[in-house]
Each structure stands twice: as structure tokens, then as C-alpha cells.
């Protein structure tokens, strides 16, 4: 069964573009990643699903029910973590969590304790006094406290230290094993890779590609830059699997896909000042996707 089904969803803010013609289906039990640069429309899509904003055209259903008409009903089983968390002035962590629970008509005392122990969050502190990362934890717990069937996370890991990030991911995996479907937006590919089964790539408001993470991983692009004393001719690097070849100030840079040994053999012929082999940025991977599309 599709948990989320989005049909040709379009949102304009006045004249400026939010998202255009977004269609997506997310199956029960999936961990679905939603990646794209800032301003691409990730938050717009998510906020439309939650009725924070209303679509210009198109429709969407969650659990088979219309997001606008049955909004309050649907949201009983959704947990949402906004990209930036700010909570009411002068409230203690525990007050906020209790307030959050009061909407679900469930007793969450036990669950609040479990989650706050796991995330190492003190319940009696004022939210105003918390660091950004700790506020984020309040957001996470607030989103998970009622054991939602669908968890929607908008850029969830910013501000969390690596240890907490790991715990948080483990927590999400556990929720997923217990039946929760997860929609997860991010602009960091590696983060999405760790967790998701499938990803949608969005750029300038449109879905560019929906892909299984396994397929995405198979493209083994590396970004290589070499600095040399003498000027080299670019032609020697114009090999199969090389893209975006560029030369500025004795630094040659390119993306390489294929056997790393082949390219290293070529490089080893020259006397180098410096060598960088890096993971390409998400933007660069996107670029490569667009090219394939064309």
C-alpha cells in the first residue's frame, strides 16, 4: 500500500516557484530520501503534506486520505520534525513534550523517558537555555513520542554531533523495523545513503529522478584534482569515464567514474605538487544526472 501518494502537486508563492508538478509514491515500510539543494522545494513539498501551506494545484493522499480534507485525522499518525526548531518561550522541555502529547490523547510518560534517556536530554531545563543541538533533540522526541506510523523529517541532522546522529539513525531504523514509514529530506547525500532505500532528487521545484539507493551507489564518481609544476596538456586526461575536465592555474580537475587504478596509472606518469581525491558534492552528482537525462 502507498503511504504517501502525491499527484502533480504544484505550489506557487504568489509568483515565485515552490514546486512544479511533483508526483511521488512512498510505500509502506520504506525509508525514502528526498534530496536537493537549498530552495529546491523539499520543505515546500513536506509542508504541503502537513497542510501548513495549501497547494496551488494537484493533490496528495496520506494513508489513502486527502491531505486537506482529512488533515487532522491523518496527522494523528504522523510525526514531524521541522528543519529549524523553535519552541514556546519560557517552557521547560517536559512541558513542551506534555503539550505535544496532549494532542494525541495517549499516555506518553514512559515513552518520553525512554527517548530522553536515549538522546541524553534533560527534561527539566528551559528550552530557551538549550543549545541548538539540544533543541533539535526536543524536536526529535516531540516528533516520535506518539509512535507515529509515518515519520517526516526535514533536514533532521543539522546541529547534532556525530554520536547523536548515529543514535538518532539507529532509533529511526528501529522505528522502521517496527513498521514506521519514513520520509527524510536532506541536502547531504552521504546522510541519505546511510539510511534510505530510495531517493527522489529534486531541483528547481521539479523531481529530476527517483532512484533506488543501490543504483545511486553503483555510480562510483570521484572528484580528482592534481597540481603540477609544468603545464600539462589536458588531452592526456581526456579518457573514457572522465567528465568536467578543467584546468586553472596548473590545477587540473575532473570527475572520474570507473576503475580507479586506470586513472592512477595515468597520473603517476607526471611529477605532481599535490593531489586530491574527493567525494563529489551532491551538486556535481546532480549535474551528472541531468546530463544523463538529456
Amino acid at each position: 500500500m502507498s503511504i504517501i501518494e502525491i499527484n502533480n502537486l504544484t505550489k506557487y508563492y504568489g509568483k515565485s516557484r515552490g514546486i512544479i508538478d511533483v508526483s511521488l509514491e512512498i510505500e509502506e515500510g520504506e525509508i525514502f530520501g528526498f534530496i536537493g539543494p537549498n530552495g529546491a522545494g523539499k520543505s515546500t513539498t513536506i509542508r504541503t503534506l502537513l497542510s501548513l501551506i495549501y497547494p496551488t494545484s494537484g493533490s496528495a493522499t496520506i494513508f489513502g486520505k486527502d491531505i486537506i480534507k482529512d488533515g487532522p485525522e491523518i496527522r494523528k499518525d504522523i510525526g514531524y520534525l521541522p528543519s529549524e526548531v523553535f519552541y514556546y518561550e519560557n517552557m521547560k522541555v517536559i512541558d513542551l513534550l506534555n503539550y505535544s502529547c496532549s494532542f494525541y490523547k495517549k499516555d506518553c510518560t514512559q515513552r518520553i523517558k525512554e527517548l530522553s534517556d536515549l538522546m541524553e536530554l534533560e527534561l527539566n531545563r528551559k528550552i530557551d537555555d538549550l543549545s541548538y543541538g539540544n533543541k533539535k533533540k526536543v524536536g526529535i522526541i516531540q516528533g516520535l513520542v506518539h509512535k507515529p506510523k509515518l515519520i517526516i523529517l526535514d533536514e533532521p541532522t543539522t546541529g547534532l554531533d556525530p554520536l547523536m546522529q548515529q543514535r538518532f539513525f539507529d532509533l529511526l531504523k528501529k522505528e522502521n523495523e517496527e513498521g514506521a514509514t519514513i520520509l527524510f529530506s536532506s541536502h547531504i547525500l552521504s546522510e541519505v545513503q546511510k539510511l534510505c532505500n530510495r531517493v527522489a532528487i529534486i531541483k528547481e521545484g521539479r523531481i529530476v529522478k527517483i532512484e533506488k539507493i543501490a543504483t545511486l551507489k553503483a555510480t562510483n564518481y570521484k572528484k580528482i584534482r592534481i597540481e603540477t609544476k609544468e603545464k600539462l596538456s589536458l588531452d592526456s586526461f581526456d579518457l573514457p569515464g572522465v567528465k568536467d575536465l578543467d584546468d586553472t592555474d596548473h590545477v587540473i580537475s575532473f570527475l572520474h567514474n570507473g576503475d580507479i587504478n586506470t586513472i592512477l596509472k595515468v597520473i603517476s606518469k607526471y611529477k605532481l605538487n599535490n593531489l586530491w581525491i574527493e567525494e563529489p558534492t551532491l551538486e556535481e552528482i546532480f549535474m551528472h544526472y541531468y546530463e544523463r537525462e538529456e
Binding site: L50, P72, E73, R75, K76, P82, S100, F103
Partner: peptide, 17 residues
Amino acid sequence: REKTADFLISKPVSRNK
């Protein structure tokens, strides 16, 4: 203004209420 709308509206409660 205090950026809590995302918290409140995403709860199972209608705007009417």
C-alpha cells in the same frame, strides 16, 4: 513569528479548533 507554527499545525488539530 516565534516559528512554532510548524509544531502546532502539524499536530492532529484543525485550524478551526
